[in-house]
Simulated assay, not measured.
Amino acid sequence: MAELKRRVAVLISGRGSNLGALIEAARHPDYPAELALVLSNRADAAGLERAGAAGIPTAVVESRPFGKDRAAFEAAMQARLDEAGIGLIALAGFMRVLTEGFVSAWSGRMLNIHPSILPAFPGLDTHARALAAGVRLHGCTVHFVTPGVDEGPVIAQAAVPVLPEDDESALAARVLAQEHRIYPAALAWAASGAARLVDGRVVLNVPMAGGAFANPLPGHSGLPTEMVPSPPVPRAGS
């Protein structure tokens, strides 16, 4: 009997660039998560069309009619998640700050991706801020969501070099390519139980990419069972 996959909802507000990467990863028969719902707070979100073309059910809970009543908006959203039997949430450009109550209810079951190597540059305009700061490495982070914005425990990170000729657009494109690698991997780990939140910290049951700037390593398909092992440590005198 085939093992049941974790049912995932991807929450979006726009085009859903990372949604596309998750859709591609979930096509693999061994991927441990099923994209069972794509939910947006905007009816005009381009990602809804992308999800529909991939045969994924979609839903819209417009946030604007709720005004400042965030709890009522989240209750309406929760009803859609319950209807779909969702067990994990992946935020992919969802431009709403969630209440502590909603986040607590999904503790250890809601992931987000942020375009910086947290805790550096939380919030918006990360690429411009990285260039202004003169850092030599920039990147992205997948983390479990906690009530503090961009403060959740880290599941996976990837780093890219900041080149002398970079502008914001060039750096953003380089980081986005890594987002598309590590988000499917991190979601797979969470769905399979290889990444768990224990006492406020992430416990990973996957081989580490020792000595590499990115985890997972290049060529990794996003499946926990296909992690590329760390290179062997050279023996003395070799």
Rank of each mutant, 00 (worst) to 15 (best):
V175L: 09
R64K: 14
R27D: 10
R174W: 01
L11T: 14
A128P: 03
H138L: 02
S230A: 15
I113C: 10
G14C: 11
E3N: 04
A156H: 06
A191V: 02
E168Y: 06
L19K: 00
A194S: 15
P229C: 10
A36C: 04
W106D: 00
L163H: 09
A76I: 07
A54H: 03
P65H: 08
A2W: 03
S40D: 12
R64W: 13
R50N: 03
A191E: 01
A132I: 09
S13G: 12
G20M: 06
H138K: 01
D166E: 02
P234H: 03
L48R: 12
G152W: 05
A54L: 00
G210A: 12
P57W: 09
A212M: 11
D199Q: 15
L91F: 08
R70Y: 02
V206W: 11
R96E: 05
T58K: 02
L171M: 09
V61Q: 01
F94W: 05
A172R: 14
L81D: 02
R50V: 07
E24M: 07
R235W: 08
A75I: 04
F121Y: 06
M110F: 01
H127W: 08
R136H: 04
P232T: 13
A84I: 05
A120L: 15
A71E: 15
E165F: 14
P218H: 04
A84G: 09
A43V: 03
T58G: 01
V154F: 11
A79S: 14
R6K: 12
A188H: 07
A21S: 13
L37Q: 00
A79P: 06
G85Q: 12
M1V: 10
G55Q: 02
P115E: 09
A33M: 05
G123W: 07
C140Y: 06
G87T: 14
S238E: 15
G55W: 03
S230V: 06
A51C: 02
V206L: 15
P29S: 08
A158S: 10
L131M: 07
V162I: 08
V206D: 08
P231N: 08
A105P: 00
L39I: 13
L171P: 03
E168A: 14
S221E: 11
N41V: 06
Y31S: 01
A130F: 05
G87I: 07
A128N: 13
G16W: 05
I12V: 15
V38Y: 00
V198F: 07
D199I: 06
G47H: 07
P32A: 11
M1E: 04
G134V: 11
T126L: 11
L48V: 08
A190D: 00
A33W: 01
L88C: 09
